[in-house]
Each structure stands twice: as C-alpha cells, then as structure tokens.
C-alpha cells in the first residue's frame, strides 16, 4: 500500500513539474513551427496586457483555472503537438485548418479574465451598437449564438498570410514582416 502512495505522489509531482515546465512561451516557441506564431504575437494587440506584461501562449490557449478541463486540453494539445512535430508532414501545418482547431480550444474564461466588461472597449469607452447587439446575443439576451469569443474575434494575436487582405486586419498586417521573410 505504501508503495502505491509513494508512486502516486511521485507521479503527481512529476506531472505538476511537467505542466509548469511546458507552460512557458519560451518552451512553446522552442519548436521551429511555433516561431512564426511568436513573431506574430509580438506585433499583435495581444503582445502586452494592461500592466505591460507580455502575454503568454497558455493564457489564451489553455483554460484559465486548473481542473479536469485544463488537464484534458493540456494533454490533448501537448500530445498532438509532439506527434505532429515528430511524424507530421506539410499538410498538418495548413493554417486555415489549424485556425479552426485552435479556436475550439480557446476558453472564453481566458478572454474574460482580462476583458471583464463586454460592453466596454479596452480604452474603457462604450462599444458600438453592432458590438452591443452581438455581445447581447452571445449572452443569450437577444437570440443566441453560443459561438465563443474566438469564433467571432479572429486574428487577435496571429495573422496568417491569407488573412492579411482583410480591411479589418490592415493595422496588424502593416506591422508584420511577410511570412516568407524569416517567419
């Protein structure tokens, strides 16, 4: 019995350490596939938070609080990344498809940890009437979209080549070097 407890404790310790060690932005960007995502993040509106602290990958891509959901998503995404890094081919990095998967795992709580008031902009001004209508339907007050933040708010931190032609992304695109040049 004692052995089982010791083994369990060691496993929990190792898992906790592994979770911590693999949650830094530097760790994510240590694979060459992630370099361009990091560069894009650096030039994006999500580079720094309100306190001028750099925003880490895990702040958006993993749930905000620790729990079964966190463990499940962290494990799934981690194993997927390792498998694709080791055995994947070029088709696995088709970004239009990656966007869909990535958005699925962006937890609304992560967004709302910083963006607390949905009826105000980041500059603390009231949002537009269109934004108000959209956010009301998100909240279920006026119809119901249930799409999740990231399924409407696209390209908030990353901007692939094919999304740069959109008028709404013009400011972000102007800051970025072209994807072919060292991204």
């Amino acid at each position: 019995m004692a052995t089982v407890i010791v083994v369990a404790l060691v496993l929990i310790g190792v898992t906790a350490f592994a979770f911590q060690a693999t949650s830094s932005t530097d760790f994510c960007a240590s694979c060459h596939e992630m370099k361009r995502h990091r560069t894009e993040l650096k030039f994006s509106p999500h580079a720094m938070d309100a306190e001028k602290q750099p925003i880490a990958c895990v702040q958006c891509h993993l749930p905000n609080s620790f729990g079964p959901k966190y463990v499940a998503i962290k494990t799934y995404l981690g194993v997927k990344d390792v498998l694709v890094h080791t055995f994947g081919d070029e088709d696995d990095f088709y970004r239009a498809e990656l966007q869909v998967t990535a958005r699925t795992f962006i937890d609304d709580e992560s967004c709302r940890a910083c963006h607390e008031d949905m009826m105000k902009t980041t500059k603390d001004k009231p949002i537009s009437i269109e934004g108000k209508l959209a956010h009301e339907s998100y909240l279920g007050k006026n119809g119901c979209t249930n799409r999740g933040c990231a399924n409407c708010h696209h390209n908030t931190a990353h901007l692939p080549d094919f999304d740069r032609r959109y008028v709404v992304n013009a400011d972000f695109a102007a800051k970025l070097p072209s994807e072919k040049e060292g991204m």
Binding site: P68, K69, V71, A72, I73, T75, Y76, V100, R103, T104, F105, L133, S137, N142, G143, C144, T145, N146, R147, G148, N151
Partner: peptide
Amino acid sequence: ILFYTQTAVSGTKCEAAKHL
C-alpha cells in the same frame, strides 16, 4: 481525454434563433 476534447469542447453549439 480524447473523448472529452472531442465532445465537451465544440465550436458552434446552437443556432441564432432570432437576433433582431
């Protein structure tokens, strides 16, 4: 974990019934 990530986390969950 695989089952959870495939079922519990989905994109669009329901359609907009009426939004105006």
